[in-house]
Nucleic acid binder design. Structure first.
Lengths: 210, 210
DNA sequence: TTCTTAACTTAACAATGTTAATTTAACGTC
DNA sequence: GACGTTAAATTAACATTGTTAAGTTAAGAA
């Protein structure tokens, strides 16, 4: 029994409810548990009603992805208050890892799952702002370290440095998420692994300071 | 029209054909393209015949995983001929990355996808031999560097070192596989990223050699 | 009042993993 | 050599899922 002519804000609210239901499902049980029918059941609609708000399941996940990507960046941006550039970089890594490990399904969806190539044409001006883009945030933090001349002199490309640091932390976190429960490897504690990764990379990238 | 009483070797051969068909499918089109029906079509059987050889799809993928894991380790073990421990470690990393990037779907299945916890009870003696276990191979190579006293003196746990090096290379490769095609990031070449990761980690983990 | 249309539901389809029932023919045994 | 047993395979069928098409309902416009 459909009441009619929903306002724009009403439609937005329904979109949110769909997204929230979808998020709940995969945060709890992973992406394979996210079915259109279960989402629909949770919000009290029929399964096909979702298609009035999202083109298909892929689009829904895509939007979830983007939304939470921005939320992550926003969360991380609190470290911008830290003055010392190097400590700021270290804390960014720790925060990033903390997010990854406390939201493994999120992290999987964001950084461990191939999706059809994203088109960032809309709202492109918002894309590369530190507050809204985790990578750009990292890049800026690395730049700060770069301008004070703390990196070894042969390292002339902050972008490459940023990508390497990201890869290091990502490697530790993603291995933990995928294989952390496997017993054929005698895992050291995740804290030890993160710490060593950070200190080794810093040690290897920064100028010798003696 | 079933001919009957297949010998053990016949059954093994059929298993192989199933595994090969499955491998072909996902090497070419990724794991989502691996369907029981398509496998069956390729080997000229009905879909349900596969269940005479594998408990379910998960088991099939599991076995594929294990088989190719051993093949990888075998492939990598050729670097054992290298004498210099440090160069050996570097070459292992390069070979590993080369495998990952030239077999992205394999790599995804092996190291980027959570599977139900493996039980390595059977043939457990084969599990931790360098020739058959990529991680153990890395561990041994790291040990070799460790015993010549090349790591910084405060690093006393070769296992932790190995896990960190693995995570570094894995991070570069897995990011490339998942996000390498995304344009919102100005990726440096994959070679540059691998090289910097290796030199930074080495630099950060080894003793200062001046 | 009647027509249009937004909002939604029900029905239905195709693809997929999987199980149950059925068929076929090779083998051992009397 | 006939015959039952059983391995090997197939066909039929079911449940789940994403998705489309057709139908339904009621709010607003004419």
């Amino acid at each position: 029994m459909p009441p009619k002519i929903k306002s724009d804000s009403d439609r937005k609210l329904i979109r949110s409810r769909i997204l929230d239901a979808a998020r709940d499902l995969f945060v709890e049980k992973g992406v394979q548990a996210v079915t259109m029918r279960e989402i629909a059941k949770r919000i009290g609609y029929s399964p096909t009603a979702i298609y009035l708000h999202f083109k298909d399941k892929e689009s829904l996940l895509q939007e979830l992805c983007n939304t939470d990507f921005l939320a992550l960046a926003d969360n991380l941006s609190s470290i911008l208050e830290i003055k010392d550039p190097i400590r700021k970089m270290v804390e960014l890594g720790k925060s990033y890892a903390h997010f990854a490990l406390s939201h493994p399904n999120h992290y999987r969806l964001l950084f461990m799952t191939s999706r059809p190539v994203q088109e960032y044409c809309n709202a492109s001006d918002l894309q590369h702002t530190p507050n809204h883009d985790a990578y750009t945030l990292l890049k800026q933090v690395v730049d700060d370290v770069f301008v004070i001349g703390a990196f070894a002199s042969q390292l002339t490309d902050p972008e490459l440095i940023a990508q390497t640091i990201w890869a290091g932390i990502h490697g530790v976190c993603s291995l933990e998420i995928v294989l952390g429960k496997d017993s054929w490897i005698e895992w050291r504690t995740i804290d030890d692994r993160i710490t060593l990764m950070q200190s080794a990379l810093l040690n290897g990238l920064l100028k010798e300071t003696l």
